[in-house]
Each structure stands twice: as C-alpha cells, then as structure tokens.
Design a protein around this nucleic acid. Structure first.
Length: 619
RNA sequence: GAUUCCGUAGCUCAGUUGGAUAGAGCAUCUGCCUUCUAAGCAGACGGUCGGGCGUUCGAAUCGCCCCGGAAUCGCCA
C-alpha cells in the first residue's frame, strides 16, 4: 500500500489514525505545500466524517485553506482533489460541494484497516500517549453514609465510578477503586438514638429487614420525633432556631456523638453492631449492581488525618489563627472566601480530613490522578480543597479531579430522604428485573430455559436497562427519572443492544454448526472483492470503537461509550435486515459476514462491559 | 446578593479543536414476520437550538446582556 514517507507509522490502526492522520492529512499537507508553497499545521487540516446525504467517507473542510492560500474555497478544493486523485491510491473519488471536499476511499483501504485492527492482540483496549499509564489512578466512588440505604442518586454515583474505572483500565491505566465509607458522625448517632428509644431490640433477623433498611427506618424515626419536638417547642413560644437546638432528641444525639468520640464502650458497641447491619445490606446491593472496590476506607479511622498538615501550614504562615484558636486559610486572592480548617477546640472539619487523606494517598501510591466521584453540590468544596493543596505547595494539587455529576430528579423535583421521596436502590433494581421477566414471558422466546437460566436472564436485562438508562446521560447533565413510567426496553436502551448481541450470537451458532463455516470468524477481509453498502457502514462503525473509548476515558464519560454501542447496534441491525448472513450458495460472502458478526459481537460485549452491563446469549 | 452549572422536537436525550439542510429514541401515524430472534427494520409527522446583540466566510458550539431553572456561598458532610 502506498504511503507518503512521513506517514509511515506502524501504529496506524484505526479509523481516525489510519485514515485521517496517516493518510489524508499528510497528503493534504503535501498537496498544499506543492500548490501554494506553504506548510500547513496539523490543526489547519479540518477533517470530519462525511454526512450521509453526500457520497464519500471523509470530508475536508477547505474554507480555512482557502484563506491561507489567498484564493477561493472552490479553487483550493479542486486543486487538492486533483492532487489526491493522482498521489493517493486509496482515494477512489472526490467531490466538492460548497467548500466541502468529500473523499471516498476504495473498499480495499477499509478492509486493510479492518485487517490491521483484527491482528491486534488486544483490539478492545488501546494505548495512547494521552494517558499516563506509569502511575496509578485512584477512583473514589460510592462513599455512602451508614445511616440509610442506597437510593437512585447513589446508583448514578456507583455506576459512574465503576464505569470510569473500567474505561481507564481499557486505556492501560492501573486503577484502584476506593470506597471511603462515612461510618461516623451525627447521622449514625441519630439512627442509634432512635433505635435505643423505639427499637425494642429489633434486628435484621427478628424483623426480616435488610440491615441498611432497618437502620434507615430508625433514621426516619428520629426525624419524626425531632420534628414533633420542634413543633411542640415552637408552640411553647420558642423560636425556630432555639427549638431546633434544644429539641431533646437532637441534644441526646449530640451527647451520643460525644460519647462515641470519648470511646464509651456501650456506645461504640452499638455503633459497631448497627454499622455491621448496614454493611451486610450494602454488600448485597453492591453485588446486585455489579460494582466492586479494591480498598475500603472508614472515616472513623481517617477523620483525624490532616491536622498535621494544618499545623504545618500554620508554621509556614500559609494559614492563620483567629483569637478563638480556630485556624483559617485566606482564599480571597483566588476569588473565594476565607475557609475554616480547624475549630477553636482543635477538632477537624470535613476538609481537614480530605487534606489528610489526599496526602496520605499520594504518599502511598504516587497517583497520577485522584478522581472523586461526588455530586455537583460539592463543586465548591473540591475547588477549595485543590487551592489549599496548591497554596501548601504540593506539586500534585492539580491531579485531583472532581468528577462532578448532576442530580437525578423526579418529576416532583429533587429526591429528599427525610420526606420519603427517594427511589430506593434495591426496590428499583427489583422492579426492573420484574419488568424484564414480564416482557420476556410475554414474548415467549425462552420457554425452554430452566428457571435458573430465566432468572439470570431477567437480571441481565433488567439491570442492563437500568444501567444504560443512567449511563447514557452525560454526567454533567441533570437527568429525570419518572417512577410512574417504567424504563423502556425498546429503542435507545440497554436491552436493544443486548438483543442485537443475542441475535448475532444466534447467527454465529448457526454458522458454527456448519462444517464449511466453522472457522469463518478468522476470514481475512482483504480477500473480499465486492462490499455491500451496509457492510461498509458496519466496518466503519467497528473501526470507531477505539476513538470512542479514548474519548470516553479522556472525558471520564461513560455516556460516550454508551452512545457508541447504540450506534454500532443500529448499524448492525440495518445490515442484518438487508443482508442474509449464512447462505450456502455464497460461501465467500457468508465467511466475510460471519467474520463481521463476530467482530460486532465482540465490540458490543466490550463496550457494554465497560458500562458494567452484561449480555445474554439468547433473549 | 455573589459565584458556578444548566436551558436543543410534546417527552427523554445525542451533538467538544466553530462547518453542509441540527440528529436519535419515546409518543402519534404508515408499511414489513412461511426465510439467520419483529425487544427488530423502513418511512411520515415533529425545531425561532430560552431571547437579544456581537465576533466570523460560517455559531446549538465562542463573547456580552437579559429571561427561566438548579447548586453552592455552614465551626454540616
């Protein structure tokens, strides 16, 4: 295959790199130099894939070139087109439409690209200089409080964290998934207090409730008592503020917290007992969701970290002490405010701990990135955290990434735990699985499945629908969930992609059972003489896997991968509908198509596993 | 009040170095199962990209000003 000398890159392996960077761009640069005597920078060559209403594969936008050449877009386009037609054998045809040069490549060029990709030892992963693979990346996600069960907001957090970690692994970054459990503080004391007062010794065993739900029940119970006390106190003439402060429940909860901090035995025992219930509950929720962690941290063990950093900053004059003994940092020169780092009594606040854990983790791992998957209500917090680290002179301050995601809204507005308007994670997963079961039975395609196989399938589909629904939306975007309308199983959904996969597997089973096609998946695409339009589209979609992966990993956005999988499934379905795959009368075409099916199945499987979504062999 | 984020079809969402007539799905309507799974395919309908001004050959995308929504501005986490 002919190449311009400077374009001889062994890494030329997929759509973007192969066709744009290694082939067309250098050719355009050479043409421009020859025609106008000027060298074009890489950025000056604007290439995009051709819109489907025009014929061609790649499109060169020539407006910028016209300006540089000092002539009309038409003239430049025509001149470059002629040059490409002569010099680049992969180019089959060019057409110029209003300043857009559409370039069509020979089928053989695409088949060559496909073959190159197929030869790779790890086609579903990619190496790129854009990612630092020599140091680990820490992804902290989930990080629940231990006073209530997980809800839909946590699901978004967990799916995002898990998927981002998988995406980074797929670009060869060593990843550690971290869960920092907030197991201490006033919130768990509230549950403890309510349980002491109203619980009558109730346990998960005695009540048959999942541990996290049981503890959550007493958290709600606390709030009920507290509210009743407030309204009584205000009725007695106290102000709202006084009432909130003096309500006996709150006073007792605070006492409980002090006892805990003092290491009071019965309090610590109760705390351990109730947290253990919660962990058992969380474990099963995590297991069903399919997320996992490499390291667990507990705030009860880390909340004192950071004090020495504050002292250090104080010694060096980066922080200052007020008369009451509290320690502050002045961030007004960064456009922010003053921020408290240590209370007057020497106890720490949230950010103190974060300073401590960040430094500890850096010292232990030398991370290239520390990614916090935390809701956008903490944008300010992380901005401050980074600036403080910067002021302290830590070179790695900018390696902290706040992967900020937006809220999940209900039609009625924001979810509020205290008002009971939350969508419970366990319930939601069960509803999705039930719905999957209902639809599957209705369609009656798996009547020969054993009950275990069927259960497994419902789980795969139900959770696939839920995960896809959440991950297809960009993290930064607010998303709406309507519990009244169950999540769709048709159209742009997880089950649509799973279904596409299952259909491919079915065809592949059929082909594999036929002697002459048993090894068709290894067919060399370069031997294919005529290529159907749908086959061509499919090949191009297959070759887009890696640039999608890199974009998704680079932007920390599983949504990019989700949309890629959908695009590929759509292209495949169109191909499937139009092109008979297994046809004994046309063995060569069959072998080629079976190979395309194999690659498509592999791509879909890989894409969905990056999202934590499983695929079924049949559905 | 200040800061940040968001506003794309009736609904849910794509659309990131600024590029062609702004795309999907759902919903509504029309076709396609005796042929590898119809959870599918093909098509119709649906838009002042919140509004205005500006920069540009070209703006959903960049800048400024409004309107609407959200979050934050705690010795909470």
């Amino acid at each position: 295959m002919h190449r311009l000398p400077e374009a001889c890159s062994p890494a030329a392996d997929y759509f973007c790199r192969m066709m744009f960077e290694s082939l067309i761009r250098p050719a355009v640069q050479a043409a421009f130099h020859e025609l106008y005597g000027k060298h074009l920078g890489d950025d000056a060559v604007v290439l995009q894939s051709t819109r489907k209403e025009f014929s061609g594969d790649l499109t060169l936008v020539v407006f910028g070139l016209a300006k540089l050449a000092g002539t009309s877009p038409d003239a430049v386009g025509k001149a470059i087109a002629e040059h490409l037609a002569i010099r680049v054998p992969e180019v089959k045809a060019c057409n110029l439409v209003k300043g857009f040069l559409n370039i069509e490549l020979h089928d053989s060029a695409w088949m060559e690209a496909l073959f190159t990709w197929m030869q790779e030892s790890e086609p579903y992963r990619t190496s790129s200089a854009a990612f630092d693979t020599s140091h680990p990346v820490l992804v902290e996600y989930s990080s629940p409080n231990t006073n209530k069960p997980l809800h839909l907001g946590h699901i978004r957090n967990n799916l995002l964290g898990f998927s981002v970690a998988e995406l980074l692994k797929a670009v060869h970054t060593p990843v550690t998934k971290v869960n920092l459990i907030n197991d201490r503080g006033i919130h768990i004391c509230k549950s403890m207090l309510a349980w002491l007062k109203q619980g009558n010794g109730e346990t998960p065993e005695s009540s048959g409730m999942k541990g996290d739900h049981l503890v959550g029940k007493y958290y709600v119970e606390f709030d009920r008592m507290y509210k009743a006390e407030i309204s009584q106190l205000t009725a007695e003439g106290k102000s709202e503020e006084e009432a909130k402060r003096d309500a006996p429940s709150m006073v007792e909860a605070r006492e409980l917290l002090l006892k805990w901090e003092a290491g009071d035995q019965p309090t610590v025992e109760l705390w351990k007992k109730m947290n253990a219930w919660v962990y058992t509950g969380f474990e099963s929720t995590y297991a069903r969701l399919g997320v996992d962690f490499d390291t667990f941290y507990y705030e009860s063990e880390t909340y004192l970290l950071g004090k020495s950093i504050v002292q250090d900053g104080l010694d060096r004059g980066v922080f200052y002490r007020k008369e009451d003994g509290s320690v502050w940092v002045d961030l007004t020169d960064e456009g922010l405010d003053h921020k408290l780092l240590l209370r007057g009594d020497g106890t720490s606040v949230y950010i103190t701990q974060d300073l401590g854990t960040a430094k500890q983790r850096y010292d232990e791992t030398g991370f290239s990135k520390l990614i916090y998957v935390v809701g956008n209500e903490q944008d300010y917090h992380f901005k401050v955290l980074k600036l403080i680290l910067k002021k302290l002179g830590f070179s790695w301050w900018d390696s902290l990434v706040h992967l900020s995601y937006n809220m999940v809204d209900l039609p009625s507005g924001k979810m509020k735990s205290r008002e009971g308007t939350v969508v419970d994670a366990d319930e939601l997963m069960q509803e999705m699985v039930d719905e999957a079961a209902r639809i599957t039975r209705e369609l009656g395609k798996i009547d020969d499945f054993s009950s275990d196989e069927a259960r497994e399938l419902y789980e795969t589909i139900g959770l696939g629908a839920l995960k896809y629904f959440i991950l297809k939306v960009d993290p930064e975007k607010r998303m709406l969930f309507n519990p009244e309308e169950s999540i769709d199983f048709n159209g742009h959904t997880g089950p649509f992609i799973q279904y596409t996969y299952a259909r491919i597997r079915s065809v592949l089973r059929k082909a594999a059972s036929m002697e002459q096609f048993a090894d068709a998946k290894h067919t060399d695409p370069r031997s294919q003489k005529s290529v159907h339009e749908k086959e061509r589209e499919l090949v191009m979609a297959l070759l887009r896997y890696r640039e999608s992966l890199e974009e998704a990993a680079g932007r920390f956005s599983p949504a990019v991968m989700a949309n890629y999988a959908y695009e590929l499934a759509k292209v495949f379905n169109s191909f499937y509908h139009e092109c008979p795959i297994v046809d004994q009368a046309q063995p060569d075409t069959t072998r080629f198509r079976v190979m395309l099916c194999t690659l498509t199945a592999g791509n879909l499987l890989a894409s969905l596993s990056l999202l934590g979504i499983r695929v079924p062999e049949r559905m």
